[in-house]
Simulated assay, not measured.
Amino acid sequence: MSLWADIKARYKITKAFRAGSIYKTIGSGENEKKILPKIHSIRTTEHSTEYVFTLPTGLNPDLLKKNYFAFQQVFGERIKLEGEFKKYVLNVYQKGADKVLIYDGNEIKKEIENLKLGVVCGKDRTGNYVAFDLLKQPHILIAGETGSGKSTQLRSILTTMILNNKPEDLQLYLGDCKKSEFHIFRKVEHVQCVLSNGKEIARMLKYIKKELDERSDLSEIFEVSHVDDLPAEHRRPYIVVCIDEFVMLRKDETVMDILTEIVAIGRTLGVFAILSMQRPNAKVLDTTIRANLTVSMGFKLRDKIEARIVNTPDAEKIDVSGRFIMNSDKHYDLQAPYLEMEEAKNLLNPFNVNKQPVKEVHEEKPKQPKLTEKDVFADVNE
């Protein structure tokens, strides 16, 4: 950073300190003196400018939260302030961060190659990917209005799982309540079923419940804390249950009870849930489910209430498709990879197989008889 740029940057943050009364006052009258936070460093990159500063001893840190608006008035809304007690880091991001992030399978593979069941979320404002292991941070909630990027994120996450895991190691059970998103996965070898009828999704979840019980029994018999530690002959594949617009199943108590059980005990049994909805509802997302959905992704939401339900503050302020707030180990402001439907089909094509019986039932097609419970999951009883 040049001397002039450094002077200009220091002037701006000092202006924010003064505008927000973020300083300690000693003395009075003509002897009054204002002690501003000490600026330790200013670093500029292609994507952002980073300010590191410390508060004067004795200054209440709550002033930063209370008068956060002063930073927004000086630097704009594309900022993030992190820290506690004394030391803080302010990042001011460039507008260039709003560019569409095209899905790149090779780049994403590098990000998750050391993870057992990797999920790439997107890039932060500094241009770095953020990824996590579903085994360590199980269960995902994705919420967002139509056109916000929620459906594309689901497509990206599921495609990435398929591309980077063997069918014998991963099974996907998909519920598509909107009947619009998951048809491209219907023939993929990893996918055990793609269902859109509420009764069939309930039947699928009963099967998952039976699998949970069996895995729990095996863990107890062999005295292990995780299914990965079972003897080789008893190993089970990871199971991911993904239901789009699961709020449509809210009236089925059995379904909601099983989903609650999956998110409560599924991690150690190798069973994970990805749930999505357009309009977060506190009655549907009760405290048990919400507490166990360890990763929340809030795309554009209608208001603060919905953002609070998903625990993704400021998601109501998002004005860019594909941008979202993620809450996991901390809060992230990310841009999701954009994966077009046709590109996803091309990537999935090598994994497509002909399957019998047909996995998805369309009641409107009389030529294709509706599968009975016995046909789909023969060992699951009502």
Rank of each mutant, 00 (worst) to 15 (best):
residue 186 R to V: 09
residue 14 T to A: 10
residue 59 L to P: 06
residue 71 F to K: 12
residue 29 G to T: 10
residue 209 K to D: 14
residue 265 I to W: 01
residue 95 K to F: 04
residue 350 P to D: 10
residue 160 T to W: 02
residue 349 N to D: 14
residue 379 D to S: 11
residue 89 V to E: 07
residue 221 I to G: 01
residue 336 A to N: 06
residue 274 I to D: 07
residue 355 K to H: 09
residue 375 D to G: 05
residue 62 D to F: 12
residue 51 Y to W: 06
residue 363 E to D: 07
residue 100 V to D: 06
residue 336 A to V: 00
residue 341 M to D: 14
residue 268 T to Q: 07
residue 215 R to G: 07
residue 335 Q to C: 02
residue 324 F to T: 02
residue 380 V to T: 15
residue 290 R to N: 13
residue 188 V to Y: 01
residue 297 M to G: 13
residue 124 D to S: 06
residue 104 D to P: 00
residue 299 F to H: 15
residue 324 F to Y: 06
residue 80 K to E: 15
residue 324 F to D: 04
residue 328 S to T: 10
residue 262 I to P: 10
residue 86 K to G: 12
residue 12 K to W: 13
residue 172 L to R: 07
residue 272 F to P: 13
residue 322 G to H: 10
residue 147 G to C: 09
residue 127 G to C: 02
residue 210 K to M: 14
residue 75 F to Q: 11
residue 331 H to F: 11
residue 345 K to P: 00
residue 279 R to G: 01
residue 66 K to P: 01
residue 234 H to V: 02
residue 49 T to M: 05
residue 148 S to A: 15
residue 161 M to N: 01
residue 269 L to Q: 04
residue 25 T to K: 11
residue 183 H to Q: 11
residue 227 V to A: 08
residue 253 E to M: 12
residue 199 K to W: 05
residue 65 K to F: 13
residue 185 F to W: 11
residue 8 K to P: 00
residue 9 A to Q: 13
residue 301 L to R: 10
residue 370 K to I: 15
residue 110 K to P: 03
residue 243 I to V: 03
residue 13 I to D: 00
residue 34 K to F: 15
residue 234 H to I: 01
residue 95 K to Q: 10
residue 211 E to F: 08
residue 107 E to F: 00
residue 357 P to S: 04
residue 261 E to L: 02
residue 295 V to N: 15
residue 188 V to K: 05
residue 50 E to W: 02
residue 325 I to F: 04
residue 303 D to L: 11
residue 203 R to W: 15
residue 39 I to Y: 00
residue 32 E to K: 14
residue 232 A to G: 02
residue 312 T to W: 07
residue 130 V to Y: 11
residue 33 K to A: 08
residue 210 K to C: 04
residue 9 A to W: 03
residue 292 N to K: 07
residue 6 D to S: 11
residue 309 I to T: 14
residue 17 F to P: 04
residue 151 S to T: 06
residue 38 K to P: 07
residue 233 E to Y: 10
residue 302 R to F: 06
residue 240 V to G: 05
residue 20 G to S: 01
residue 130 V to E: 09
residue 31 N to P: 02
residue 359 K to L: 10
residue 125 R to P: 03
residue 335 Q to K: 08
residue 82 E to K: 12
residue 241 V to R: 02
residue 289 I to P: 04
residue 356 Q to M: 08
residue 345 K to Q: 13
residue 49 T to Q: 08
residue 349 N to V: 10
residue 313 P to A: 08
residue 346 N to H: 09
residue 247 V to M: 09
residue 340 E to R: 15
residue 161 M to E: 02
residue 173 Y to T: 01
residue 72 Q to I: 14
residue 314 D to Q: 14
residue 98 D to C: 08
